[in-house]
């Protein structure tokens, strides 16, 4: 490089050295990715993201005993892992218990969470039908849904949790 050229390069560099915007945009067009199931895992309270499927409490109980009870206890009342049912209405008592049924504001969250995290040794191993069935089993334990109700992508978001209005967004101490 001639002296003139290298001086020019130096000047260019110096002029832009501290401009934060001076970088190359390296994000690639995500294309089809945003449509693919593996990039659409989150399920929102309105039911967006729920897969097609259905299940009942009776089916769910079998799956639960087989796949979940070892940690959450039979009847989901707790083991080495927390209880998932019971204690509805306990939040103002001296010993409040935060279970799915007593505390969670949305039933859709249950589907979302079981699919992504449970059982811990094999997340995503359950089918959508099985997860609807597990939701039905857990929710029916406290009469949040009737024992014979089939949960599916339409009915699950319609479930009203007992503690639906128990939360207030805050960012102050």
């Amino acid at each position: 490089m001639s002296i003139r050229n290298s001086l020019l390069a130096l000047l260019l560099f110096a002029a832009h050295a501290y401009a934060e915007s001076e970088h190359q945009a390296l994000g690639r067009d995500a294309g089809e990715l945003t449509q693919q199931p593996q990039w659409n895992l989150t399920i929102t309270p309105d039911g967006r993201g729920l897969p097609v499927g259905h299940g009942t409490a009776a089916e769910g109980k079998k799956i639960f005993n087989h796949q979940c009870a070892s940690c959450h206890g039979f009847d989901a009342i707790g083991g080495s892992a927390m209880p998932l049912v019971g204690e509805v209405g306990s939040l103002t008592s001296e010993y409040p218990e935060k279970t799915v049924n007593s505390y969670w504001p949305y039933a859709t969250t249950l589907f979302d969470y079981i699919r992504r995290s449970m059982p811990p040794q094999a997340p995503y191993s359950l089918s959508s039908h099985q997860i609807y069935a597990l939701c039905a089993y857990i929710l029916s334990q406290d009469g949040i849904i009737e024992a014979d109700v089939e949960l599916n992508e339409v009915t699950l978001p319609q479930v009203t949790m007992p503690n639906r209005d128990g939360f207030s967004a805050t960012n102050s101490h």
């Binding site: 929102t44 935060k98 969670w104 859709t108 969250t109 969470y113 995290s117």
Partner: peptide
């Protein structure tokens, strides 16, 4: 436009 209401921001 809204939070997901995931388990780790509710339960």
């Amino acid at each position: 436009n809204a939070p997901a209401m995931s388990r780790d921001e509710t339960a």
